[in-house]
């Protein structure tokens, strides 16, 4: 019981710590690490609740849930990193466009896409003129 609470409690502390770091830090990589720490905390809690005493085998269901959760976390982390790298590329050539946000609703037209790698669907369609 006490060891179980220690392990699960550590998970809760990790969750709170990750949450704090996520809210306080600006840098995206720190935010990403913070959210992974918070996620690790939640997985910790699942591992702790699988414990059923020294004699009984652990509950396999929380273990399987954690495995699923880890794969989800890996996937999300990969996507965040890829988006982040894309953002850095976009910022390299003297970024001047303002992020469209609450405060910038008056911002002017979006600049043309910086990466002409792909045709954006902004091109007009064949139109049928009417009289």
């Amino acid at each position: 019981m006490s060891a179980q609470f220690l392990y699960g409690g550590a998970g809760i502390l990790l969750f709170a710590l990750g949450l704090w770091s996520l809210l306080v830090h600006e840098a995206l990589l720190r935010k990403l690490i913070a959210i992974n720490i918070a996620g690790g905390g939640v997985f910790h809690v699942f591992i702790a609740i699988a414990y059923r005493g020294d004699t009984a085998p652990p509950d396999p269901v929380p273990h399987a849930l954690v495995l699923t959760g880890i794969v989800v976390a890996v996937s999300a982390t990969a996507l965040v990193l890829a988006l982040h790298r894309r953002l850095e590329q976009a910022e390299e050539p003297a970024a001047d466009a303002e992020v469209l946000s609450e405060s910038a609703s008056a911002s002017s037209a979006a600049p043309p896409p910086r990466t002409p790698a792909e045709r954006t669907p902004g091109t007009p369609h064949p139109e049928t003129p009417h009289g």
Binding site: F5, I12, L13, A16, A56, P57
Partner: peptide
């Protein structure tokens, strides 16, 4: 965190119900 720790403690102290194990 203190609230959650208390909740976890209280939960673990419960008689383990009919778990899936």
């Amino acid at each position: 965190a203190a609230l959650l720790l208390w909740a976890l403690h209280a939960t673990l102290a419960l008689e383990p119900g009919p778990r899936l194990a």
